[in-house]
Simulated assay, not measured.
Amino acid sequence: MRILLPLVLIVIQGTTTALAAAQTGPDDIVGAGRAFMERYAGELESQGLEAEYALGSLDPRLSLAPCDDDQIAVEFSSDPMQSTQPSLLVSCEGERPWRMYLSVSLDIYGDALVAARPLNRGDRISQSMVTTERIVVNAIRQGTITRPENLIGLELKRPVRAGTPFTPHLVTSPDAVSRGDHVMITARSKAFAVRTRGKALGNARVGEQVRVENLSSARTVRARVVAPGQVEIAM
């Protein structure tokens, strides 16, 4: 026994060391997260965006069940375009599955349309009111407007300062019909449509209801605005 005992201890110690080496540790998880973020940054670059990120740290004592590299999955737990502090969900689908979160700080830089000067509520946006700046687009939860054709002609809901990024919540479609405007009234059924001229008795946007006066009969009816100067009545 005096001879065998040291050998048994060596075998047990060697097995314990091998099992510890097989565990998934913080370096493995951070490495998987870094590889995922590098791929994501490459996808953003192909879209004209630039990403700067820093992964969070993990407890060095962390030890999870073994997981082959091809079984480790990484994904965002929330939309990275709406937060600068998203988390990565790292998981293993092996024989002993596990899941955990890895924090990440993420700034996504991109060109966005911003106010070229101070603007007032109700201003209808023209090209001269707009300029382009490089901003952290995911710091704006409402999302930014990046294409001029999606902005020009819209109306501001509130005053803004110079440099304010335009967001969908900041603008609205202007009235397509204003009080006193002459409009074309279309009375439509499945079989036919009748058109006549009328006068708007209020303001309304496309899709809204407005009272109009039929200039031929002097009757007042409610109609739905379908386009600037165009209203429709269902028959």
Results as ranks from 00 to 15, higher is better:
Arg39Thr: 13
Tyr40Val: 07
Ala41Gly: 05
Ala41Asp: 01
Ala41Trp: 02
Gly42Ala: 07
Glu43Ala: 14
Leu44Asn: 06
Leu44Lys: 10
Ser46Ile: 07
Gln47Gly: 06
Gln47Trp: 00
Gly48Asn: 09
Gly48Val: 02
Glu50Phe: 15
Glu50Pro: 06
Glu50Lys: 15
Glu50Tyr: 15
Tyr53Ile: 09
Tyr53Met: 03
Ala54Arg: 15
Leu55Trp: 04
Leu55Arg: 03
Leu55Phe: 03
Leu55Met: 04
Leu55Ile: 13
Gly56Glu: 01
Gly56Trp: 06
Ser57Glu: 14
Ser57Met: 11
Leu58Tyr: 06
Leu58Pro: 00
Asp59Gly: 05
Pro60Met: 02
Pro60Glu: 10
Arg61Asn: 12
Leu62Gly: 06
Leu62Lys: 07
Leu62Pro: 03
Leu62Phe: 03
Ser63Glu: 11
Ser63Gln: 12
Ser63Phe: 03
Leu64Trp: 12
Ala65Cys: 04
Ala65Met: 10
Pro66Leu: 06
Cys67Leu: 00
Asp68Phe: 07
Asp68Lys: 10
Asp70Tyr: 10
Asp70Leu: 10
Asp70Arg: 11
Asp70Glu: 13
Gln71Asp: 14
Ile72Met: 13
Ala73Leu: 10
Val74Glu: 02
Val74Asn: 00
Glu75Thr: 11
Glu75Pro: 03
Glu75Asn: 10
Ser78Arg: 06
Asp79Tyr: 02
Asp79Phe: 05
Asp79Asn: 15
Pro80Gln: 10
Met81Pro: 01
Met81Arg: 15
Met81Ile: 03
Ser83Ala: 14
Ser83Tyr: 03
Ser83Cys: 12
Thr84Ala: 04
Thr84Trp: 04
Thr84Tyr: 06
Gln85Ser: 12
Gln85Met: 12
Pro86Tyr: 00
Pro86Gln: 01
Pro86Asn: 05
Ser87Arg: 14
Ser87Phe: 12
Leu89Ile: 06
Leu89His: 13
Val90Trp: 01
Val90Tyr: 03
Cys92Ser: 11
Cys92Tyr: 09
Cys92Gln: 02
Cys92Val: 08
Gly94Gln: 01
Gly94Ser: 15
Glu95Lys: 14
Glu95Trp: 09
Glu95Ser: 13
Pro97Phe: 02
Pro97Lys: 02
Pro97Ile: 05
Trp98Asp: 09
Trp98Gly: 07
Trp98Lys: 04
Arg99Asp: 12
Arg99Glu: 15
Met100Trp: 00
Met100Lys: 10
Met100Tyr: 01
Met100Cys: 08
Tyr101Ile: 04
Tyr101Ser: 11
Leu102Trp: 08
Leu102Ser: 11
Leu102Gln: 13
Leu102Asp: 03
Ser103Trp: 01
Ser103Lys: 05
Leu106Tyr: 02
Leu106Gly: 04
Asp107Ile: 00
Ile108Gly: 02
Ile108Tyr: 05
Tyr109Asn: 06
Tyr109Arg: 11
Gly110Cys: 03
Asp111Pro: 09
Asp111Glu: 12
Ala112Phe: 03
Leu113Thr: 08
Ala115Lys: 01
Ala116Asp: 11
